[in-house]
Design a protein around this nucleic acid. Structure first.
Lengths: 118, 118
DNA sequence: GCTTGACTTGGAGTGTACTCCAAGCCGTAG
DNA sequence: CTACGGCTTGGAGTACACTCCAAGTCAAGC
């Protein structure tokens, strides 16, 4: 599929996709006879995982590193696993902190509900 | 206390504290005879809550708006409460998504653990 | 054969949130 | 009385992740 359709399917703009290719998050995107990028289902899976990593605040530089390991094949499974384990730990810690933050915010909401003079 | 001590106690740099005052997140910070900022315990509480809002991805512009409402007194309790309720909803949704992301990442870790050729 | 729409590239510009710097002021220690 | 540390201001610079633009190419429809 071309970049427009890929953008529509993933919700990622064509500009951003070109940027991701430029910085090495998307790799080995082939071109058709006219030089247009051709995306396939594997790219769809990959960008889905990228969005997961991004949504959980992994820096683009780290995603890029992960993409590079991926391009190096099965020999990098252990290192990719270590990256993800580290990220999962950070995410779990953040989840715990966010639950606490939510409780703190709700406590303040309750205070306003109690003391609202209107 | 002066800006240096306040920075040390809160973990927020003096530069950032001056920036927060400039953009209206910190308000009515008084000055001593030499023109130096003087922070008190109420500022300590406030910056603590600001850090909570920041940690949960509230944009600085929104925090600034909340700070403005705070400066207007108890008459704005209802509006502040609405802001926080909205933020709490977003945070709760994000928490749910993040739990799903964590599960997805752990699934990939499990895959690597299973298929690691080393 | 010309227009249209989607694509290409390289490079400039944007928004957010700081972060750093130069030049200068003030109070205290030696 | 001078050096020092810590503060002040205004403004410039940085990092990150895009986002936009100009100029050009190409295939398809009329």
């Amino acid at each position: 599929m071309n970049i427009g359709e890929f953008a529509a399917r993933t919700g990622v703009s064509a500009d951003t996709l070109r940027y991701y290719e430029k910085v090495g998050v998307l790799r080995r995107i082939t071109r058709d006879a006219s030089g247009h990028r051709v995306f396939d289902d594997r790219d769809l899976d990959w960008i889905g995982f990228v969005l997961r990593l991004k949504a959980t605040a992994m820096p683009l530089a780290d995603i890029r590193r992960y993409a590079q390991l991926r391009a190096e094949g099965a020999a990098t499974f252990a290192e990719r696993r270590r990256m993800l384990e580290r990220h999962a730990r950070h995410l779990q810690d953040k989840l715990a902190r966010d639950r606490d933050h939510l409780a703190g915010i709700r406590a303040k909401i309750a205070y306003y509900a109690q003391h609202d003079p209107t």
